[in-house]
Simulated scan of single mutants.
Amino acid sequence: MKLNNAVIAITGAGGGLGQAMAEMLAAQGAKLALIDVNSEALNATLSLVEKAGSQGRAYGCDITNEQQVEKTFSAIVSDFGVLNGLINNAGIMRDGMLLKVKDGQVNKMSLAQFQSVLDVNVVGTFLCGREAASAMVASQSAGVIINISSVSRAGNIGQTNYSASKAAVATMAVTWGKELARFGIRTGAIAPGVVKTAMTEQMKPEAIARMEQAIPLKRMGSAEEMAQCVKFIFENDYFTARVLEIDGGIRI
């Protein structure tokens, strides 16, 4: 896919990886439909898109709400005339152990804590992927759908909910690639390792040092490096139904 003038939607575009991806794609000439539950957070991303010389529109949307997602993707097609790509980037973490036992007292991860992560990371990805694919098929436009997974999809202590969700979005990308190829739609996922974000910058220096020592390349990845992987998937027309691991060599 040529990125120049392609219309690409990004969920979770208000900051972090979503913002970095939007800025990179805008520099390639793509037009961006920016989606986030926090409408105000989208203003900064929209400014970066425009500064890069491209066009963008902001859409406030709770991706766990089916009606809001349907309305948002309908508005995107109405505003831009077409949809060529989607990055399912929005996600949350609510880490915790399945069980904690102290002094004979057992504390369990609540269903609400588990379900909240599945709702955003899995249900939200499903709804946005479905609506994006539907829009592409309706307009007979070739397209690309990319899910953001994680190295944690292999399973990680304290992340029952998050690991399960990131395994799910990876397998959805593989499944969709096999189902949607006949419509000219390619899919893929990236599985980042530890990425330098506003969240990691708040960690204590000694915690960061321990984390980086566990990574063979001895550093965290950057948002820009994750964006480069997304660019590769969009531009390589023989890539589909696969997961790119971009983790500095770390294995959980």
Rank of each mutant, 00 (worst) to 15 (best):
M24W: 09
D62K: 10
N156Q: 15
A170I: 00
S141R: 14
E70Y: 00
A90P: 03
T64W: 02
M21A: 12
A168V: 11
M226A: 02
I8L: 10
R153P: 02
N121I: 03
R57G: 04
W176D: 03
A30H: 11
M199E: 05
A132C: 01
S54Q: 05
K102N: 12
M199C: 06
K31W: 13
A22H: 09
T160Y: 07
I35P: 09
C229M: 07
N4W: 06
N38A: 13
I157P: 03
G124Y: 01
S163T: 05
I8A: 10
Q159R: 07
F114V: 07
I87R: 06
Q213I: 03
A90N: 05
T240Q: 00
A209G: 05
A207P: 05
M1Q: 14
Q228T: 04
N5M: 11
K102R: 13
A133P: 02
Q55Y: 10
T160Q: 11
S139L: 13
S39E: 15
N38I: 10
I252E: 10
V82R: 15
N4I: 11
F80L: 09
Q55R: 14
G155C: 09
G96K: 12
E40R: 06
L217Q: 12
S47L: 11
M172I: 03
Q228Y: 02
G56H: 04
Y59N: 00
E131H: 02
Q68R: 03
V169S: 05
L32V: 06
G184W: 10
G249Q: 09
G248Y: 07
F232H: 06
A27C: 12
A13H: 10
I250V: 14
M172L: 12
L111W: 10
A241V: 03
D95L: 01
R94W: 08
K2S: 14
N65E: 07
